[in-house]
Structure formats: C-alpha cells, structure tokens
Design a protein around this nucleic acid. Structure first.
Lengths: 329, 329
DNA sequence: TTATCAACAACAAACGTTTGCACAACCGTT
DNA sequence: AACGGTTGTGCAAACGTTTGTTGTTGATAA
C-alpha cells in the first residue's frame, strides 16, 4: 500500500500542498476551519510524515548516535537506558553503534554517523584509541560531540566522566580506616587505559598521603574478569595475604568474587573490600562490599543532557563534567 | 562548513550530477577513466552521501528498529549485542526504542518506526500487551516484523522464542532426578505473561507425567526480583520447606539468591535448584545452579537473521522458530 | 470612494539523489 | 553509403517536504 503524502491530501481537498503542510504544522497563515478539515482528513487517511523528506528539506536528521566499545553486562545497559530516555523526551532518535573495542570499527562508526548526518554523538572510547583525529572532521560538519566515561586527556572536547581521583581517594580513605597498619592490595584494570592510570595514581597518592604502607607487588592489573580472578588467587597465595583490597571496577570485582567463592574466604573477616562499581554486582554477591558508586545511568543522563544543550546552542560552562560518586555501604 | 554534494563534484568537473552518481556507484555506463577522476575528487573534497536524499529517492531507510520493554541487566544487553552485530554486517542501521513496559509507549514506538520508514522491526512485547492491533498498519506499509522472546499466541506473525515447554520440561526432569519423593516448589514470573503461563503449564504437566507429587501452594508468582525474594522467604518459612526448586527466570533467580544469602542456606545440601537463565547470573553466585540456557544472544541473532531474510524477500519456512536451550550444569 | 492592511491560499523553488530516456560519437557490418 | 549496435554522457523528472514570494480576497480606515 502506498503511503499517504501531503500531496494526496492536497489533491483530495483541491488545495495546495504547501497549505496542507502549514495546516498540519498549525501555522497561523491557515484558517482554523481549513486546518480542521486538513487534520481530519490526514487522520482518516492515516497520513505519516516522511522523515527522509523532512530531513532532506531541513538539512538535519533528528537523530543522535551513541557509540560504545561493547555492550557488556555492566555499565553499558544503564547508559543506554538513560540516553534512550532523554533522547526520546527530546523527540530525537537514537542510533546505537558498538565498536567491539576496535579503533577501526570506532572510526567506521564515526563515519556512519557523519554519513547519516546525526546531529550529535555520544561516545565512549575503546581501549585502543589514542588520538581523536577522526573527530575533527565532525566538528566541521558542526556535529556536536560529547565524550563520556572512557576518554583521553585533552582540553578541546566536552566530556562527562567519573571523577576518578575523588572516587578512588574516597574509596581508599574508607578502606584504610577499616584497619590501620593492615596489609593493603589493589587490583586494577587494563594498564593501557587512562582511566586505570588515573585511578592507580590516586590510589598511590592517597596511601602516601595517609602514610599508609603499601607494597608495589600488591598492585595487580587485570584486563578482564578471569584475569582478575587469577590476580586475586596470586595475591591470596602469597606469603603475606592482603587484609584490605581496593577494586577498580565491576569487571575486576566479578573475578575477585569468583575467587573468593572458590577459596571460601570470609568477607569481611578475613579481608575487607572496597570497590568502584555501578552497584548491581555488589547487590547480588553473598558478601557485603561497600562501594563508590560510578553510575552508568548518571553518566548517560548527564552526557545526553549536555549533548542536547550543545545541539540547542547553549554554552556549556565546563568542558569537563563529573558525576556524583556516593559511597554505598 | 557546507557538505560536499554530488552537484559540487559535477560542477567542478563540468559534467552532469547523474554521471557523478553513476561513477561513484561504479555503474558500467561510465568510462573507467572518468570514474577514476570522480572518485579521486570525491575523496579529496571529502564527499559524504546524504542519506536523507538517498532514502527519499529510493523510498527506503536502511534502518531497522528494535523495540524492547526495558533495557534491564539480563537478556536485553545480549539481545542488543547480537542484533547490532547482524545489523552492522548487513550495512543497516539500528534504532533502539524502549517501551518501559507500557503499551502506550510501545504503540508510540511502533508509530515512530512507521514514520521513519524503517524496513523492519524486531520487537519484544511489554507485559501489558494483549493484542497486536497496532502492527497491522505496518504490514500494509510492508514493513517486516519479527517478534521475539515475549510474544502472544497467534499464528500470523513471525516469531523467535525460547521453546518454553521443552526448556521447562528439561529443567524439571533434571530437577526431579535429583531427589525422588522430595518436596518441590516453583517460582514463576508475572502471572499475566504468556511466557509465565507456558512455563507453568509445562511445569505442571511434566510433574504430572512423572507422577511427581507437588502442592499447588508451592507455586509462587513474583513480578520482580524483590517479590521473588519474599516468595522464597515465605516458602522457606512454611512448615514444609521445599527441597527442590524450579526457577523460571534470571529475575526470579536474583531474588532467590538474595534470600538464600540472607537465610544462609546451603545449596545444594538443603535445597537443589534449577533455573532458566541467560547464564551470567549463575556464574557469579556463590553456589552452583544448573540451568537451562535461554540465551538472549541466540534469540537476538536468530531474530535479526530472520528479519533480514524477510527484508531480502526470502520466505521463512516456519513462522515460529525456537532457539536451542542446552542444560548447563 | 480609494488606499491600506490583514487574512488566506497558491506558486515555485529548493534540499541531494537516482534513473529512464534521449542523444551523440564511434565502431564494424552489410 | 546506409545501417545497426555499443559506449559514454547529458537532460529532466521524481521522491515528500518546507518556505519565501506573490496574489487574491474582504474588511477597515481615511
């Protein structure tokens, strides 16, 4: 069945398409009587505006793109949920692209966004991304961009991230309070990520500041849950077991939890843990893990809001924005 | 900066836009020499096709829509991942819409898809959806539709679902083998969902067939994790504790797990559990839960493949397709 | 009465592509 | 020399909207 167009309606009523268009858009140039007629007929015929035509005519797409490294269990779903909410409220459409942690695919995705003429992009970088070259082109096309979560250190683009330093410091302070003079360890994510470096630096700085003794060999890196499980096993089997443990992310926490189950360790009696987490995982563990909440939903919300502010031409006060990271016991 | 168009290229080379178009699309009508020239210039100027124009001209959108009740922790992420993969491979774009478990919003989302002229829709229904009225319109516009996971019983549309009967039966058979004559209980999801009814029916039928004694009051319904937790508490505090437990879904399993932690129950010594699950949750519990895998990824994959088959005009052999549901111990 | 102004509606161009058709130039056959 | 067949290119229309401009009314004010 052919779609009903404005032209059809116009022909039917013996008026001009432009008048129909104006009538439907409630333009003041059209008599209310005619408006009534037009809208009624449009409803009756089941008229649906053709967005391709509208976009072409208006030179905009009413769509924003969301590019994420991977739609994994943690984080991504809550980000998507938040972004979808805002996007829907703004009457925009959401295009989701997944980079599968490959820069190549990331560039490809940016390209796709450019081709489709999205009005804005929300992007979290892959582990491998080291420069933002491929985004400069978009700036020319005045496509707005907001980076969130995984970003690089530079000053040009708008960003919404977790305050890594503050979050880590808060976690470490809380953790160390639980046992003065106890042995502390930390398990971190992929060493290449700037997020890992930031959290690691804050971890060390805080301990130094607190004059809390720690050993370099009690710092581990693990790029996925399995690696984290093994890391923890190593730590636990060493001659000096840690009594306090800092965990950088949900992925790491997952691995550690598995190890803890296997080793039948009693938390918090044998070891006290603090993590940075979205909050879901701690809620389904058999032991209590206090955590600093790094909420994907909050990040998604703020990032999307910022993007729409940009699209609507508002100026953003701070290039770099942080979300709240409350301590949840 | 203005976008470079085919016209610009044409003007630059003093040829006709149509020739440029043909050259870029590698049409045999154009001399390879000219093709070379055109593509080079296009690259140099950074030409990006305008999809709004292409879509308008071709009357199609190169986009499919994915409508889901809610982007929750279980299931949805893996579905999205699978669908995104296939969609990308097919050179299509993916529009994600979330119904927040409201029929109203679901209808709205379908409407949006229709307006944007998506070529196909993948949809999982909300709890409240009782008829498919709002989809008939799409059929007229020859938009292809594939229902997945949460569907209704009818014969008209294409569907990809979990074989609820088989999955449940397998689970129950496995569960009952673990203890003849023991007391069995089952916790199910929202009573309104057809998926719940199907699994419940299979549960009862299987037990009847096995001549396994069960009590009606040992069947509970819980529409979310918290309710499931309470359901399990009730069961456990009753005078006759169940020794075997069937769990219909991840959501339920989450609640039960929390209850088990709180009550410090020893699994599988005190109670043996079998669940229907995507697999992630069982992997991070402190106790082992055998489960029938109802993989979101598989469903997403098959649903997306089916949709593209429909779009490409292939005929689908079976209106109703099922995914594999292996037992994982 | 005429000039002025609003209110209403039509006209036509434009957005960037694609595509059926026409046409010119060239080739080799009769 | 006339014919038919390729090959390469241009022309123009079309997809469905929106919007600046123009034109027609009828009413109001001078």
């Amino acid at each position: 069945m052919k779609r009903v167009t404005i032209k059809d309606i116009a022909k039917y009523l013996n008026i001009n398409p432009s008048t129909v268009s104006r009538a439907l858009r409630n333009h003041s140039d059209v008599s209310s009587q005619l408006k009534e007629q037009v809208t009624q007929l449009a409803n009756k015929l089941g008229y649906k505006p053709n967005y391709a035509a509208i976009n072409l005519r208006k030179g905009k797409s009413n769509t924003i793109g969301l590019i994420i490294p991977e739609i994994s269990t943690y984080f991504a779903p809550s980000v998507i949920r938040a972004v979808e909410d805002i996007t829907h409220d703004m009457g925009y459409n959401l295009l989701i692209l997944q980079s599968n942690d490959s820069v190549e695919r990331e560039i490809q995705n940016v390209e796709i966004c450019a081709q489709l003429g999205v009005e804005g992009i929300l992007i979290s970088l892959t582990k491998e991304s080291t420069d933002l070259e491929h985004f400069s082109e978009l700036a020319h096309l005045d496509t707005k961009i907001v980076f969130f979560d995984k970003t690089l250190h530079e000053e040009y683009w708008n960003k919404v991230t977790i305050p890594d330093k503050k979050a880590t410091t808060d976690a470490v302070v809380y953790l160390t309070r639980m046992g003065k003079g106890k042995k502390i360890a930390g398990i971190f994510g992929d060493e290449r990520l700037s997020i890992t470096q930031d959290r690691l630096a804050a971890y060390k700085d805080t301990l130094a500041e607190l004059k809390f003794k720690y050993q370099e060999n009690k710092i581990q890196f693990a790029s996925n849950a399995l690696a984290a499980e093994q890391s923890f096993m190593r730590l636990w089997k060493s001659d000096s077991k840690p009594q306090l443990l800092f965990i950088m992310s949900d992925e790491i926490l997952e691995g550690v939890a598995k190890a803890i189950y296997k080793l039948k360790i009693n938390v918090p009696d044998e070891i006290k843990i603090v993590a940075l987490s979205d909050g879901y995982l701690p809620s389904i563990l058999s032991f209590k893990v206090p955590y600093i909440q790094t909420s994907g939903f909050s990040i998604g919300l703020k990032a999307a809001q910022t993007l729409f502010d940009l699209i609507k031409g508002k100026t953003i006060e701070h290039k770099k924005q942080y979300i709240d990271t409350p301590l949840v016991k």
